[in-house]
Amino acid sequence: MAKIEIDKEFCKSCGLCVKECPKQIIQIGRTVNSKGYNVAEQTDESQCIGCKLCAIVCPDMAITVYK
């Protein structure tokens, strides 16, 4: 059981987490933050294994990982 939280205001829609996620359960969503970035979001929490790769690769520390 694991999940991630993405801080909407810190995400810059760079997509590196999407590329890195081994389960491919992160995508750039339709929600837009105050700076106009489409924010990344986790699509299927149940498949998250808490590997932290998304958080490691995020340049802006937007992602918090729970396990």
Binding site: E9, K12, G15, K52, D60, T64
Partner: peptide, 21 residues
Amino acid sequence: MEKIYERVSFTSKTSPTGYCP
């Protein structure tokens, strides 16, 4: 569940850096 990865404690809590995505 407990946090296993979180932001560095002393950097800004309100806004990201000024760098490009």
